[in-house]
Amino acid sequence: MLSFWLKKTWHNIRNNLGPQLGCLLTITLALGTFGMFILLGINFVQEVKQWQRKIPIIVFFNTAEQAQLAKEKIEKRNQISHVNYVSPKQSLLRLKKWLKDKEILLEGIDDNTLLPSLEIGLKTEFYNLNFLTTFAHSLKKMPGVVEVVYPSQLFLLAVKGWKFFQILLFLIGIFLSIATIFIVSNFVYLHFQKKKEEIAIMRLLGATEGFIRMPFFIEGILQGFIASLLSVFILWLFAHWFNRQIAEASLHFKLSFLNLKQTLGFIVFGSILGYLGSFLGTKK
């Protein structure tokens, strides 16, 4: 029976090549757009995570002794990846470097006005808002601490940005999935209508609805499968091109591609959409 269905599908595709390709291209476009958003989303998350790692918690102390004392204490905590002491002198040098052309702003500031500080880096897994907040509070209570600066605002912004992006991704995903299902179902419906006479004969011979619809299901699944495969390939080409032409020339940002699991997931997802489309398209 399977060989019969496959043969039938092959016949169906060959005899309907034009619309077949039209449908394929349209859903490739839809799936490709969706894939592009996923790609951007994945890179966004990665970028935010790396970013976080680079932003330390900075604790200002009254005196260098207090800072050194605190450093020893803090280093013992196991959430910490590193603690650096930054002397007022080093701070001044850094400021000068940052404000290269605008040294006027630094007038009146010398290493006596600046405070000694500690730069604390956390292990990656502790970079969440909860821990940051409680940790900052405990730091504030240490003797000699003047001010604790930690990336809470930034962090919140990133989290918010990511949440917003997720919602956007979700909505776009739903919209494009529905569009894909709609296109496939419409296409399969037309194809089904075209074969009406043949289907009527199959019914007279005792074919069940499942038997009759199976080649159309296979067709829909194939459409989804090939379209998602194509769009993954196109996205890969895009990422490759982006990294070669743009990333190297200007930005320090490299687009990373979907991993194997994500790629397979995307293709399976596309095939399921194709199946759903053909399921709806063959329903009376």
Binding site: R203, L204, L205, G206, A207, F211
Partner: peptide, 24 residues
Amino acid sequence: ASKLPYLRQKIGIVFQDFKLLPEL
């Protein structure tokens, strides 16, 4: 309607107008 195929599977029909599938 869901049982109709099982009735028809018990019947062989020589249609007066053949009802062959031209594509096959």
